[in-house]
Amino acid sequence: MDKHIPPRLDVFLDISTYLTGFPLIDLQSTGMAEVYFNTIVAHVNPQTIDQFYDACESILKLKSTEAINETIEKELIPNGNYAGLGQKIILMWYLGTWDGNVISAQSYTQSLVWEVAETHPPGAKQPGYNSWSEPPIKINC
């Protein structure tokens, strides 16, 4: 394994799948995982980050998806917990933003909201002439 992969990136990605509702492969294929992981490092104090990932690790060990989601809702979603990291991680993946600021040009074009809305980020990944006069193409892969 590449020694430069930050420790706990896997925890960040695993908890992100539950927070966003997207499978791991979709998150990884944005190419944004390390950028978002490091955005947290840049903005949140290290102790809070550690406590957050500790909590994530215990949640991820729970037996059922139901239990995991219930605990996420109680532990990670309330804004008072872990500097609001639960909600902030969702917004990073969906909108490419941190505290309302776009993290990078790529974080905008890779933000997940557009796929959920069955379209593409305006100004990027253009689907071509006349595409708008038909329903969007569903790409199954």
């Binding site: 966003t20 509702g21 997207f22 639960g86 969906y94 959920v116 069955e118 379209t119």
Partner: peptide
């Protein structure tokens, strides 16, 4: 969050 968030946006925005 999670699937309920994804479903909500998927249901509303289009």
């Amino acid at each position: 969050f999670g699937e309920s968030l994804r479903n909500h946006i998927h249901h509303i925005v289009p």
